[in-house]
Structure formats: structure tokens, C-alpha cells
Design a protein around this nucleic acid. Structure first.
Lengths: 214, 214
DNA sequence: AACTAAATCAAACGATCGTTTGATTTTTAC
DNA sequence: GTAAAAATCAAACGATCGTTTGATTTAGTT
């Protein structure tokens, strides 16, 4: 499915409002007003509010990242280097699509989920955890990584840390006295800190004692 | 403020429904029906739906954990031991109040927040990060912990990991073939895995090279 | 220019929302 | 036992919800 400019405008406004106020907390009139279209256009183009968020998910999910998978795995980087590249890509992907990942996180918190969206999320998470599993196994076979690594929990810490950092970024800015930075400067700062923190965290956890070149 | 049995019943049902369907996604009629009271009782007792969730926050926030602070800090445990005790207490607190922490996490994702609730959350997070800061500083002064530790990000990883693990527990159960466990067995299993994972994660990250007794 | 299809609109639809009303029942206090 | 207070209820309130209608305008095709 491809969308015209007006449809994309509706989707993008909906994405921002769903992120800010939640799906149930956002009315189609809110969306229509901010997207500068008539209320009926939403049903006209998408069928329903429910179908609209499904269209959003379909759009955002399909445009993401099968490149990464082959790009990372096919390279001649060491296992740890691949893992570090992956960490940065996760940070970039989540920070570059904060609204959408906010919606996705909220969706995971709900127990009354749309089957379509639930399936999208499950598929994405399955791909992510499998990619990490392959990277870790590669590192283990090279003798660089420890043998007993809980892949699920490593994944959980990676995504959990980035997600929670983004959810708490206002608080983070305050207690670290970063109010003087512009929004862009702050995002860059946070990105760098997260990257360093996570790389350090996992390096000392999943690699063996004997030093390996970074 | 203290509540009678009926009021507590309403609060507890509201807590579960807000957790499952979100604040905006839950109607006062939903709550009234499941709590087996008349719709008007919610306004009668709490004033409004908004005041109801504020009452929930006030109730859950005041019943939590200033004991921990003095208990952990005043003991003769080593810095790492204190940190490990704190890790377990965080896991227990979040897993023991999943509904409420689900609501709290959702609230942090929203940009249109109730000032009262925002302030509750800010205060709680401030206390938590300060407690962790004191523990880390103590470990540093004893020479056990590294000098350059980003307290905010350590806190973020701790809470982010536990929160995300709970948000993804259905997925975790599936990909780890834990479907044969009862719900209680699974919770116990997850608690243990999380505890081991986080202790291991932080031990290798924040302690110095030379071994210190656990 | 004439016809067709797509887009846009104001208005209205019925349903549900949070809240209030006013009567009635139950509990409490003396 | 009786009066006051608290609790409970069905019903209704106005507002807003997502969606549909039907007329009108715009764009595309010949």
C-alpha cells in the first residue's frame, strides 16, 4: 500500500498524537484538526481509527531495517564489534522514531491489543532476538564470549534501557543539569552517553576475561 | 486519607483496568461494573475519574518503602552487597505491583500528564536515583567501585530492564519455552533470572578489577 | 466542453462518555 | 424508636465519541 501526501500527513499527525496522548486518548477530531483535513477523511481514507493505527504500524514496520541484518552479519567485524554496531543501530532507530516506538511500547503494556499490531510487534521482536542470538553464538564460537549468556535478558536490557531512557529524558535532563543544551544538542549527548554506557555494560558482561581487541 | 472497603475495592479494580486498558481506555462504567457498585459511587467517593487515579497514586506511593532506604544504608553490608539487595528489592517491588507500575510507566510515556501524578513520579525517581548515588559513592570511597559511573544510566538500566521484562513477559515465556510453568512458577523463575542477570551485569560493570567478596 | 471519478465538506447519526440529580434505602447516633 | 447522616440507585444530563450521509467541489479523461 502506498499513500498520497494527504494520507501521509494524517498518519504522521496521528503518530505524534497517539504518542503524546495514547490511542484511546486521541480523538479522530484531534487528528483531523491538526492534520488540517475534514473529520470524515479519516474514515474515507483508512476505514476507521483502528485501521489508521494499523496502517501506521504497517508503514513503519515495512520501512525498517532488513538491511541491517545482512550488513552486520556479512561483515568482517569481530563479534564484539558487530554487537557494538548493533547497539548503536538500536539507539539510532529508537531515538530516530521516538513517537512510533512510544506507541509501540504503550501497545506492549496493553492487554487488550489489536491482533494485527500484536503480530507486527511479535515478529519484530522475534527478528531482533534471533539476530542477537546469532551474534552471541558467533562470539562464543570464536571464544570471545562467555558460554552462559541469557539472550532474552541481554535483549531486554538493551531495549529496556534505551526505551526507559527515552521515557525519562525530561527527568534525565534535569538531574544532570543539561537544561542549557538545545534539544538537538541534548539528543546528541544522550545518544553518546547511552552508546558508551551500553557498550561498556555488555563488554564486561558477555566477553571472556582475556582481553580482546575492540 | 483512609478508605473504607468499598472505596478500596473501587481503587483496586481501577488499578487493574487502567493497567490493562489505559486511563483513557477505561470508562467509569467499566470500573463500576467490575467493582460491583453503582456508577455514581465513583464521583460520590472520589469526585471524578481524574481524582480516582490520583487517589490510587497517593495510596500506592505512601505505602512504599522508606524502610528500605534506612535498612539498606544502615547495615554493615559491603557496597556491592547493598547494591545487590537493592536490585532484589526493585525487582520485588515492580513484580509485586505490576498493575500499578504498568500505569506509572504509561504515565511517563504521556506528555499530557496530571501535575499531581507527575510530581509523585518525579519525587519517587529522585529518591531512587539519590539512593543509588549514595550506594555507589560509598563503594567508590571504599575503593570497590570504579570512579566513572553514570548514576543516571545505571538507574535507567536497572528500572528499564525490569520494566521491559515485565512488559514483554508473554514474549519471554514463549521464546524460552516456559509455557509448561504455572503463572506463579513463571513469576518466580523470571524473578530469579532477572536477579542473577542484573547482579552479574552490574558487578562486572561498576566494580574494580581486583576481586571483592560478594 | 462534457462527463466521470475522486476529494472534500457540513451536518447529522447513534453510542458512549463522565457527571449530576433526586428519590430511596441503609446505617449511625442518641 | 426516631431523627440525621451516609450510601445506593435508576435515570437523565450535556458533551464528545467514531462513523456515515449526501451534497458539493475538484481533478482527470476523452
Amino acid at each position: 500500500m502506498e499513500y498520497n501526501a494527504k494520507q501521509l500527513q494524517i498518519i504522521e499527525v496521528a503518530e505524534r498524537l497517539f504518542s503524546q496522548k495514547g490511542f484511546a486518548g486521541t480523538s479522530v477530531r484531534d487528528i483531523a484538526q491538526e492534520a488540517d483535513v475534514n473529520v470524515s477523511m479519516i474514515s474515507y481514507y483508512f476505514g476507521s481509527k483502528e485501521k489508521l493505527i494499523e496502517a501506521l504500524f504497517q508503514l513503519r514496520m515495512t520501512e525498517s531495517s532488513s538491511r541491517l541484518e545482512t550488513l552486520v552479519m556479512a561483515s568482517e567485524l569481530s563479534a564484539l564489534q558487530k554487537f557494538n554496531v548493533f547497539i548503536d543501530s538500536v539507539i539510532d532507530r529508537l531515538m530516530g522514531n521516538q513517537c512510533f516506538h512510544n506507541i509501540m511500547l504503550r501497545e506492549q503494556l496493553s492487554s487488550e491489543r489489536t491482533p494485527v499490531i500484536t503480530e507486527y510487534i511479535r515478529g519484530l521482536k522475534l527478528r531482533n532476538v534471533e539476530l542477537i542470538r546469532r551474534m552471541i553464538r558467533e562470539g562464543q564460537e570464536a571464544g570471545d564470549f562467555k558460554k552462559d549468556i541469557n539472550v532474552s535478558l541481554v535483549t531486554t536490557t538493551l531495549y529496556g534501557t534505551v526505551n526507559y531512557a527515552l521515557a525519562s529524558q525530561d527527568f534525565y535532563k534535569i538531574i544532570n543539569d543539561l537544561g542549557h543544551l538545545s534539544e538537538e544538542e541534548f539528543q546528541t549527548h544522550l545518544r553518546g552517553e547511552l552508546s558508551q554506557h551500553l557498550k561498556n555494560l555488555f563488554k564486561s558482561t558477555i566477553t571472556n576475561e582475556h582481553h580482546i581487541q575492540n
